[in-house]
Write a protein that binds this DNA or RNA. Structure first.
Length: 510
RNA sequence: CGGGGUGUAGCUCAGCCUGGUAGAGCAUUAGCUUUGGGAGCUAAGGGUCGCGAGUUCGAAUCCCGCCGCCCCGACCA
């Protein structure tokens, strides 16, 4: 009997919805396409923010905050950019409401001369600031970041993976030349890769997006791609070299050492609350989430087996003292987050709540443990032995001494499991398009697990690339990226048979 | 935005075809029992049946319109 009513094997999308609800991470709000993020979900985001913010600052970026509303004219300045975002823009057109026949409406008298858009991303408004801030080569590089909410009017939303409003971090930088901007683009990508692997225990493949998948207005787009447990790829972060597209559109020029006016080269890069969806689909099991300890809002949860009797007080004291002792330890460079769940609820219910949330270590401490100076606990990553829940018992001092190791082991085990899955399911055994069809076309409904294909291609562009995209679409496939670390030699192009020039990953994707 | 499904108690759903004034399980609350682990018994509370307009003496049920959600498609930094 699992803690979730639905298993991954039965219905992966339903299982995903169940985990978001049952782990109490988020729920839908009355606002279409938007969610209420609850403490277990938001707490994970706070851990992500704290660590990623540290890494971003360490690499020389400062935090800024730009407005939510962007003058509509700004978005029109870069042609590809407006084309990419126009269809999903929320627009603010009025500044006042008025009751007309008892119905509240935007006051026709209060229409804005120039509407605002709610930011879908901030290249344009930040570019405008750059154009004023960048005067001399001495002002460069200019490296900033902001933590913000953005809005994209998506047709189809899924909690954490694609919502109309989401939270993210967006880095924006300006540089003297392409080489410097490309260094920055790759630096950001590497921050995302290492952060995802070290901190989220989510292995990824970093690489360059094909032309058709580039960010609107970008010269080059790079991504990190993670493999979910249904085999689909999730784009978990992107880093863009924007060339001089935005500089031209917004006049970001500096006086170089020779006294000439030169266009700056800009970059942008971001990760969002989508990472949380990735964590769920990487580490969840049929009992709920298994939260990596580094991002678990509570790493050790202590459930006292309260009985509504006088001896409860002594038991609570024992648990509080244990939590305090654990809180003095450190793990992943921070204080250990221990929590005593004293809520007036049945201990068994509390246990299963924390199992579904995926607290890494759940202690269940009864009067006999307290009297004997022991700690009984379950490990979320090794919850069962056969059908039965596996309970461990250690002397209190031994448990305290073991905690850091347990958390480290949990983090490592989650990473190792996901890494093994990723590596076992990327196949280079495809030589012709027929091979792809044989594998990916086998199930018509697209429901079964399908791994990724790593294939050589001749990197067609324009109409030839469109044709490739169409052929892949028929198999519900997309090109994810061209991984960094390319081989010395290539097989013939899987699409055309021409000489291969690059290896790419092909997969079904979110 | 197209195709399909769906919307009834906090959750999962029955009732709809064949109109008669709303149900089950779980959850909640109270009491009693139980206590090394997802407990039992008894009782209670809880629903404008997604919204609106029709047909009808009477609509959860039939008709029309709208909206949300889920799946597929299109779209998706």
């Amino acid at each position: 009997m699992h803690a979730l009513k639905i298993t991954r094997a039965e219905d992966f999308p339903e299982w995903y919805q169940a985990i978001v609800r049952e782990a109490d991470m988020a729920e839908l709000s009355p606002t279409r396409g938007c969610m209420i993020i609850k403490p277990w979900g938001y707490g994970i985001w706070e851990r992500i923010q704290a660590e990623l913010d540290r890494r971003i600052k360490e690499s020389g970026h400062d935090n800024y905050y730009f407005p939510l509303l962007i003058p509509m004219g700004f978005i029109a300045k870069e042609a590809d950019h407006v084309e990419g975002f126009a269809k999903e823009m929320a627009v603010v057109t009025h500044h006042r409401l008025k009751a007309v026949d008892g119905v509240l409406k935007p006051d026709p008298e209060a229409e804005l001369a120039e509407p605002f858009i709610i930011r879908p991303t901030s290249e344009t408004i930040i570019g405008d600031a750059f154009s004023r801030w960048v005067k001399s080569y001495r002002d460069l590089p200019l490296k900033l970041n902001q933590w913000a909410n953005v809005m994209r009017w998506e047709m189809r939303t899924r909690m954490f993976l694609r919502t109309a409003e989401f939270l993210w971090q967006e880095g924006h930088t300006a540089h003297v030349d392409e080489a410097d901007a490309m260094d920055e683009t790759m630096l950001a990508l590497e921050i995302y890769r290492s952060f995802s692997e070290d901190y989220l225990a989510m292995p990824v493949v970093a690489g360059e997006k094909p032309e058709n998948e580039r960010f609107p207005g970008a010269e080059k787009t790079f991504s990190i791609e993670a493999m979910m447990q249904d085999g689909k790829a999730l784009q978990a972060g992107t880093s863009h070299y924007l060339g001089t597209h935005f500089s031209e559109a917004q006049n970001i020029r500096y006086q170089d050492k020779e006294g000439g006016q030169t266009l700056a080269h800009t970059t942008s890069w971001g990760v969002s609350t989508r990472l949380i969806g990735g964590v769920i689909m990487t580490h969840g099991d049929d009992d709920g989430l298994r939260t990596p300890p580094a991002i678990a809002p509570r790493q050790i949860v202590i459930v006292p087996m309260l009985r509504g009797k006088p001896e409860d007080e002594a038991l609570k004291d024992y648990c509080a003292a244990l939590a305090q002792e654990l809180g003095a330890l450190t793990a992943f460079g921070e204080r250990v987050r221990a929590f005593v769940d004293t809520k007036d609820a049945k201990p068994a219910d509390k246990r299963w709540d924390w199992v579904r949330r995926g607290a890494p270590i759940i202690c269940e401490i009864g009067p006999r443990d307290a009297a004997g100076g022991q700690v009984s606990f379950i490990k979320r990553i090794a919850l069962r032995e056969g059908e039965k829940i596996k309970t461990h018992t250690l002397a209190r001092a031994d448990f305290v001494a073991a905690v850091q190791g347990l958390l480290d082991e949990t983090q490592s085990a989650l990473y190792a499991e996901a890494k093994a899955r990723l590596e076992a399911n990327i196949s280079g055994e495809f030589n012709t398009f027929a091979d792809l069809e044989a594998y990916f076309g086998a199930d018509e409904d697209g429901g079964g697990f399908k791994g990724w294909a790593r294939v050589s291609w001749s990197r067609p562009t324009g109409a030839a690339l469109d044709k490739v995209v169409e052929r892949l679409k028929a198999l519900k496939l997309t090109i994810r990226n061209a991984p960094l670390g390319q081989p010395a030699n290539y097989k013939p192009c899987i699409f055309t048979g021409a000489a291969g020039v690059e290896e790419i990953l092909i997969a079904r994707a979110y």
